[in-house]
Each structure stands twice: as structure tokens, then as C-alpha cells.
Computed example of a mutant assay.
Amino acid sequence: MRAVQNQAAALVGMLAAATGSEPRTEETDRGIRVEADLPEPLSPTARTAILTALASAHRYGHARTDENATVWAEIDREAEQ
């Protein structure tokens, strides 16, 4: 489990640096989910940093509402076996 927690901590750090906000984490049955709010406007440098961070996860996505936009990423526990 330690590897999953380390990978999630790295992802949280990368997303925090790229977005300027503190990502939220949630333990799930499958692993760890990380969500971060996206700033407006989103600079090209921030966009690249966010995409690089998301690429380290097993799954990721994007959600947009009238109020905000967020990205999410999931890291699986079973991947470390």
C-alpha cells in the first residue's frame, strides 16, 4: 500500500503546483482518487503540467460545470502486486 500512497502524494504535489489549489483525496475500494479544481484562466504551462501529472495515474478525467472545472485521477491498489 505504501507505493500507492507515495504515488498519490506525488500526484497531489504536482497538481497543487500546477493549479495553485490543494487537491482533495479519497480512499476507495480500488485505490486512491485525487481531484483538483482548475484555475481560470489556465495557462499553457499549467495545462502541460496538469496533463503530465494526470498521465501518472491509471485513469483520469475532467468535469466542467457552470461554476468550475475539475480534473480527477485514480491510482489502483492492485497495480503494486
Rank of each mutant, 00 (worst) to 15 (best):
A73G: 07
T52A: 12
A53D: 07
Y60C: 15
R30F: 02
A16R: 15
A16C: 11
A46L: 05
A3G: 15
G20Q: 05
A17M: 10
P44G: 02
D37H: 05
Q7G: 12
D66A: 05
Q7I: 11
E35G: 07
A73P: 06
P39D: 00
A53T: 05
W72M: 07
E67A: 08
L51C: 13
T19I: 10
L51I: 13
L11C: 10
V12D: 04
A10N: 13
R47P: 11
L11M: 09
T52M: 14
V71W: 03
E26I: 03
R2M: 12
L54E: 04
E27V: 06
S43A: 07
A8H: 04
A69E: 06
R30I: 02
Q7R: 13
G13S: 08
E67Y: 02
Q7T: 12
S56D: 08
A63G: 14
E74A: 01
R33S: 01
E80S: 14
A8R: 02
S56M: 12
Q81W: 13
S56W: 09
V12N: 05
A46K: 01
R24N: 06
S43E: 01
V12F: 04
A73M: 07
R30L: 00
T25R: 03
Q5T: 12
S21D: 11
P39Q: 00
E78A: 13
D29V: 03
E40M: 05
E27G: 03
Q81L: 14
I50Q: 06
P44R: 04
E80N: 15
T70M: 06
T19N: 09
Q5I: 11
S43M: 04
A53V: 08
Y60F: 15
D76V: 12
A3D: 15
A8P: 10
